[in-house]
Simulated scan of single mutants.
Amino acid sequence: MSNIQNINIPKPCHQSWQQMMPAESGRHCAQCCKTVTDFTTMTNSQVIAYLSNTGNVCGRFNEQQLTNLNHQFSADIPATATSGWKRLAVIMGIASFALSFKAVAQNKPATTVQTPKPTGDAGSIMLGKVVATTDAAKTRVITGHIYDDQNLSIPGVSVKTPSGLTRATTDTAGKFRLTIPADTKQVQVLFIGYKPLLVDICADENYQVKLTTEQYGMLGEVVVTRTPIIKRIYYKCIKRPIRKIFN
């Protein structure tokens, strides 16, 4: 097993995967001139091997795939961590005994040094630069269906947290699945041509979201109505010259 403990994408890429040009291992993003690796076609072992040998990776993950990978890392960590803590406990025990013996001999109090525990942060996202972290934040999974005024499903809708660090896109059936921090209060629903919408997050796990179209100004072919040619000749050749003579 590699030394990777967690995988997340803290700064999501806002570019459309469908609009990127196909490349050897994924698709090429013209915005940042990088190849985005498609990890959705790889097994967990292939993903781990790839990330263990490659740095500075932009990737595309299936959200459930990221969850499964991080669960696998979590399952592998305790044995290593436990053996490490056992070694640390033995070392601290020996050090404590030596300090206690010295304190009795010199009648001086011994000092205890506390080792701070590592802290970390993690999230999950489908497209962006891959970053390995040490701990996983508490999250919850919400799902939903997004449709329009005619009750038709809308694919390609962006659903994200207000910070933008966690987002998902609806599939061809207008459905989405999003892992969010447990304390998230709202998510944003965005799609071109429709009014942006904030959805309150409550105890429900599945949401039915209706988007309404934006109200634009009048659109259409421009038609210009002009004065009939006879009237234009009359004003130009007769009426206007006569006015100049008398004025």
Rank of each mutant, 00 (worst) to 15 (best):
N8P: 03
M1N: 12
L127P: 00
N56D: 15
D171W: 01
T213D: 05
P196G: 02
G120T: 02
F39Y: 06
Y50K: 07
G84V: 08
E221F: 07
S124A: 08
Q64Y: 10
Q31K: 15
R240A: 15
D135L: 15
I91F: 11
I142Q: 01
L198I: 04
D38S: 02
P10M: 05
G55T: 14
N70D: 09
M92A: 14
G220H: 04
D204A: 14
D204K: 14
V157W: 04
S25P: 04
T133Y: 08
L66C: 04
C32Y: 06
V159R: 00
I4F: 04
Q65A: 08
D121I: 11
P10H: 00
G193V: 00
P181F: 05
Q15R: 03
A132H: 06
T82K: 14
D38H: 00
S83V: 07
I238C: 10
Q215C: 01
I233T: 06
F176V: 00
M218R: 15
L152N: 15
V113S: 15
I146M: 04
N8D: 11
W17E: 02
K244L: 11
Q215R: 07
A98R: 10
P162G: 01
M20T: 02
K195E: 03
V199S: 04
T112G: 11
I48M: 07
G144T: 01
T212L: 03
R87F: 09
V209P: 01
Q72I: 09
A182V: 13
L127D: 00
M92E: 12
Q186L: 01
R177A: 06
L99G: 11
T212I: 00
L190G: 02
Q114G: 14
Q5C: 07
R167G: 15
Q215G: 01
K34N: 12
C237Q: 08
A182R: 07
M21P: 06
I233M: 11
Q15S: 09
T115C: 11
M21L: 12
N68G: 13
V223L: 12
H14S: 13
A203S: 13
F191R: 04
C13Y: 07
D149S: 11
F191C: 05
Q186T: 08
I48Y: 06
L211Y: 00
S16W: 00
D149Q: 12
T225G: 08
T166A: 11
N206D: 12
T225V: 09
V209G: 01
S74Q: 12
S45G: 04
D121W: 11
K175I: 05
M126A: 03
T139G: 06
L127Q: 03
P155H: 01
R87L: 07
V113F: 12
G217E: 13
L178Y: 03
K160T: 06
E221P: 08
N44A: 15
D200V: 02
G123I: 04
L51G: 03
L152W: 08
K185C: 05
P12K: 06
I245D: 10
P228F: 07
S158T: 12
V90G: 03
E63R: 09
A49E: 07
S74W: 10
G156Q: 01
P196C: 00
L99V: 14
A105C: 06
Q31T: 12
I238M: 10
N247I: 12
Q64K: 13
G93M: 04
H71C: 07
T225H: 10
L197Y: 02
T227M: 14
A132F: 03
T184C: 07
T227S: 10
